[in-house]
């Protein structure tokens, strides 16, 4: 239990660092770190397949995507950075305070989740759940993947030069 809470505190700290970090590149790396810590937590919760997906996709692919975008876009000038930092400090100083207060309030409320559902048959193997019980989800995933592919094709289409 102590280890779980330690991992969860690390997870929230990594997320806070990701959000509050000045550099976008460091934020992307922080996001990968957050995903890696979440993977650890999911492993601890006895869900290895979801953890593997989280590690390979969310901690691997998505930060690479963000780093590519950051490298493709223009960096701010020195003057812009100074002006931006002033407004940034004003916007983000309250975040850690809000998170600590919210955590304390939720902890003190100690909400009891009555999640014991009357299940007739529970399948514990996620592969069987995916292929036998949630076929419609798989169909939806395929449709969404194709939508994403077509979206990218449309967004990165070479435009014909007029005239």
């Amino acid at each position: 239990m102590f280890l779980d809470i330690l991992i969860l505190i690390l997870l929230v700290s990594a997320a806070l660092w990701t959000v509050m970090c000045r550099s976008l590149l460091r934020s992307a790396i922080g996001l990968a770190l957050t995903s890696a810590i979440l993977t650890l937590m999911i492993f601890k919760m006895n869900a290895p397949l979801a953890a593997v997906f989280e590690l390979s996709v969310c901690a691997g692919l998505i930060p690479v995507l963000f780093i590519s975008v950051i490298s493709l876009t223009q960096a701010m000038t020195k003057q812009e950075v100074i002006e931006h930092m002033k407004s940034r400090l004003a916007r983000f100083w309250g975040l850690p305070l809000v998170i600590i207060i919210l955590g304390l309030v939720l902890g003190l409320l100690s909400i009891k989740f009555k999640a014991k559902l009357p299940l007739s048959e529970v399948e514990t193997d996620p592969r069987l759940v995916m292929w036998h019980l949630r076929q419609l989800d798989l169909l939806g995933q395929i449709i969404i993947l194709f939508t994403g592919v077509f979206g990218v094709v449309v967004l990165f289409k070479e435009r014909k030069k007029s005239g």
């Binding site: 979801a50 559902l117 529970v122 399948e123 193997d125 759940v129 995916m130 019980l133």
Partner: peptide
């Protein structure tokens, strides 16, 4: 809830 298989399938989705 003891339904970790379904939860994992949903997380993958």
């Amino acid at each position: 809830s003891g339904n970790l298989g379904l939860a994992q399938a949903l997380v993958i989705t």
